[in-house]
Design a protein around this nucleic acid. Structure first.
Lengths: 414, 414
DNA sequence: TTGACTTCGTTCACGACTCGTACGAACATG
DNA sequence: CATGTTCGTACGAGTCGTGAACGAAGTCAA
């Protein structure tokens, strides 16, 4: 569709302001609070321009005057002489993004402000078959609460474990929730009170993408430019974040990694084919390799992968054969990571989900695979890390994703 | 480096003009010639704005009045009544991009105008060890010729078979040319006459990236949104183009596909490791599988992969065992394509290099692998095609890459 | 305490841009 | 030849970023 290339709003003068406003916000986020003069220096904008932009932002509640304690100037400078600048910081709770994560047994909602602070955090459990109702209720409740607190809710992002068509706002398939072709954006929008929904954009995303975003903005990968996130549950999920933006490839490739032809072909995958990666590194494969029977791995190993993996880690402490099994899975994990990393070239790989409890055993194996498997190990160092965010990471990432629009100048502030 | 996020020129009013100018150019390129009024309708810009922009473009030589024969209106409309519009077309040779391709025995230079027409095409052979001299000479000659013809050379792109650090303008390693850490941009810039080089940007790129670009803009993949290009020589090269833009992933991943851990691990790769994909689908592997001895595959099979592959194709016509060998390689090719396609989700895979002469044998095998290996075959149709561009594709793509800057509004026209 | 010095934030005139309206130009139809 | 319709441009209005100028708010030295 060639029209897509021409598409997008025509660039008017107010787009200018949006873009430069976003520029100022990014400077404040990435390089810390600063006086107007310093922001001007950092962004290359004229002092006068920064002045008007900051004034606007103050009225919007996006920034506020920093606490009395002045921030140190750019390091190593001679002591300040002259009129001291009044530092400006990203504001407390004026502008927020709301993220909601759908899971098999529960929902998590998180709201972040521009400074990345958690403004709201809530979790509710759901009954099977009633996820959509609960989701609508939770979202509108959170939205109402935030608005009541005086926040400007820029958007809502819903993280779903499944195949998502973000551009159409549809969940194509979420097997664990038994969802197929759900018009989720419409569902949520209709649940929100009318007045706000005009400005407040509702979107859908894959949960692995969101978790990746969370790692890159709030987790171990904060400050890393190219982050690959890989999460293990019954299947596998992946997300790739470059400079704070989720890479969606062609039409949103993430989450598909589980069915890449990596590893042995002896097991049949749930998708009907053989040789899928997740048949060798998914949770069932791990339990099998570790010699742990399902009923020994907690009451509902597939519903609670973390508990199951913790049980495996426990046994591995005393049983060498369990350790060997885990390492064997780790080698296949490593092969896949090398493949993906070779293609995407991340600076850091973050392992999440059930890999975390088994991290001490898995990480060295994956690291070794990377050392042996990547070219030019001089420049292309790729660090392996474990997720530290735990439950609710996806909702945090979803909220972060919403704020991306603000920092990119896609949306205008009130 | 957080500063990268803040970087980029501050957005002034003339950036506005650049962006809208680019918008008009894209409309003319993607949706064909049109009157000012129609362009206004297509871009969403005001008629007056389009008028001034077109006037500017005319003075720059970027567009010109279309031939007398008026273009049919948007199809199906009632017959035109009212003053007929004067259609505008992308101009003949006012604005051009120059692409130069470095190969083992020869150089190719191609210049394209905004309409995608070839304005200049030249090929010279080189002596081993003197490639850089020849490259400097050819580039400056072509540049001078274009300038003399009155063209505005927007930029020069050099396609190199090797690892390239595009942002630093360096060739990190080009084994076939025995180049290591060559500051190619500097080399070329110093060879160009001074006056122009201020505006005329010189850049370096990987040749597979450029070929991919060529396929997406001029080849079989024209009009396809997500294109994966895969070329076979002694090693392998790949490029991924989304909506006319080369995807460089983290720090420029393309070209690395040859060393992904795909296929058997029985052969040792030139990089010193085992299990690299190119040990199973590179040209040597193909010759081996087809049972063709090197000295039977043309005088210099590795220097002329196309001739060698043609020889193999010839033999396959009569010899069933050769056909079987080719198909065997094809299956490994298919496995890799499925892996990459599963991750990147292209709408079309274009095979180039030595795969082309063997296309009739290879394509069905790869197609079958894709049918069996990709999820959700309903939506995610992925077509396999053969490159038709032949020699010099990379230089064409390099020239295309230069023009990207114009269509993106990154550079201003004179 | 006072005056010189330095830096910060704002004000103002200016140029560049896009937009909407208005108007003349160019063609078809009856 | 009058009418209707559409095209392209001219003009005033509104917005935005910029540089210079200026008052404000500190430090430092005498």
């Amino acid at each position: 569709m060639p029209e897509a290339r021409t598409a997008g709003r025509p660039v008017t003068t107010d787009a200018l302001r949006r873009l430069n406003t976003a520029r100022v916000l990014r400077s404040l986020r990435d390089e810390g609070p600063a006086s107007r003069a310093l922001v001007a220096q950092r962004t290359g904008l004229a002092k006068a321009t920064v002045g008007t932009i900051v004034a606007h932002l103050q009225r919007s509640g996006a920034v506020e005057d920093a606490p009395a304690v002045p921030v140190a100037r750019t390091s190593g400078r001679p002591a300040a002489s002259g009129r001291p600048g009044r530092p400006v910081t990203l504001a407390g709770a004026g502008i927020v993004g709301l993220g909601v994560e759908v899971n098999v047994g529960y929902l998590t909602a998180t709201a972040l402000d521009l400074a990345g602070r958690t403004v709201l955090s809530r979790r509710v459990s759901t009954e099977s078959g009633h996820e959509l109702e609960s989701l609508r209720a939770l979202t509108s409740q959170c939205w109402a609460q935030l608005v009541q607190q005086g926040a400007d809710v820029v958007g809502v992002d819903i993280a779903v474990p499944g195949l998502v068509a973000r551009d159409r706002g549809m969940v194509v398939a979420a097997p664990n929730l038994h969802w197929t072709d759900v018009d989720l954006v419409h569902e949520i929008e209709s649940a929100l009170p009318q007045p706000g929904s005009g400005r407040c954009r509702v979107r859908v995303d894959n949960d692995a993408n969101c978790s990746a975003m969370a790692e890159a903005t709030q987790g171990v990968a904060r400050g890393v430019d190219h982050v690959l996130f890989l999460t293990g549950t019954v299947g596998l999920g992946a997300g790739f974040v470059v400079q704070g933006r989720v890479q969606r490839g062609g039409s949103g490739f993430a989450g598909e990694v589980g069915h890449l032809p990596i590893g042995g072909a002896d097991r049949r995958c749930a998708c009907g084919r053989r040789g899928c990666w997740e048949t060798t590194v998914g949770l069932p494969a791990m339990l099998r390799a570790a010699g742990v029977r399902r009923r020994d791995a907690g009451p509902h190993p597939m519903a609670d992968p973390m508990a199951a993996a913790t049980e495996v880690a426990q046994r591995a402490r005393t049983d060498a054969s369990v350790r060997a099994g885990v390492r064997e899975v780790g080698r296949w994990l490593g092969t896949g990571v090398v493949t993906i990393a070779g293609l995407l070239d991340p600076a850091m790989v973050v392992l999440g989900g059930y890999f975390v409890p088994l991290g001490p055993l898995l990480v060295p194996v994956v690291e070794r695979a990377l050392r042996g498997g990547l070219l030019g190990d001089g420049d292309r160092r790729c660090v392996v890390a474990l997720s530290t965010l735990g439950l609710g990471a996806a909702s945090t990432g979803a909220a972060s994703e919403v704020l991306t629009d603000v920092f990119d100048g896609v949306v205008a502030l009130r």
